[in-house]
Design a protein around this nucleic acid. Structure first.
Lengths: 124, 124
DNA sequence: CAGAATCCACCTGGATACTG
DNA sequence: CAGTATCCAGGTGGATTCTG
């Protein structure tokens, strides 16, 4: 194994990074966690504010995050039912890295968009 | 619009964050960028070291990243052909946020795995 | 070696209807 | 309100084959 290969190896399947990225790498997880950043929220609130997510996907995503210990689900036996989701400490600790990504997105959005335009113009 | 709604709104579709996340949120982009972090690499090297990626997906991912201006493609007219991919400044600037995510992954992997085990045991 | 092209199985995820 | 259950279209992406 070359030195180059050793440097690249952190991205082999099965390593922690890879497994976490596979989990949060779906379309919705990051958005749901982000939406819960400010504080607890109800199912319907999340459904409204993570635009484009379906009820099915929200349920699945919340379930997965609960399973990962990143949020807690609390149901209040009222009528009608109220269910609140809240990030755990672990879930909240994910906010900083995601915020970094968000900051990068905002900082580079214009630049990326411009690059795309140039690229598309070239090979047309 | 309530204050809660205003806080949640950054995640509406079409906003910079959302659009970037949609782009890098696929299974491979993050891994390919990460693999290019240490320096330029050839197509075949990436194919070997981003485990599980197919030739088709690697091609697609590299093309998209090139379009975004996050990496450059340089072909050397040798026999056999040699093609090297290298992150641009913009691409490299993405490494820090991704590194933060990677650090988080490593730090929380055990904890997440444990939470999953508990969760699965409970409702079995 | 670095792709392009084709085929197609699988799975994601939306729509809909129903329930406690 | 907060889900569950079912159906199914569309797209993702792997496998394979072929080329400069």
């Amino acid at each position: 194994m070359s030195i180059e290969e050793m440097v690249l190896d952190p991205y082999q399947a099965g390593c922690p990074t890879r497994r976490i990225l596979d989990r949060i790498g779906d379309r919705w997880t990051v958005l749901v966690v982000g939406a819960l950043g400010p504080g607890p929220a109800r199912f319907s609130a999340l459904l409204r504010h993570v635009e484009g997510i379906s009820q099915k996907m929200l349920t699945q995503t919340l379930r997965a995050l609960e399973r990962d210990g990143l949020l807690t689900r609390r149901a209040y036996p009222e009528v009608p039912v109220r269910v609140e989701y809240q990030l755990t400490d672990a879930g909240r600790s994910l906010l900083a890295p995601l915020k970094a990504l968000e900051t990068w997105s905002i900082d580079h959005f214009t630049q990326v968009h411009h690059a795309q335009t140039m690229f598309d113009r070239r090979d047309s």
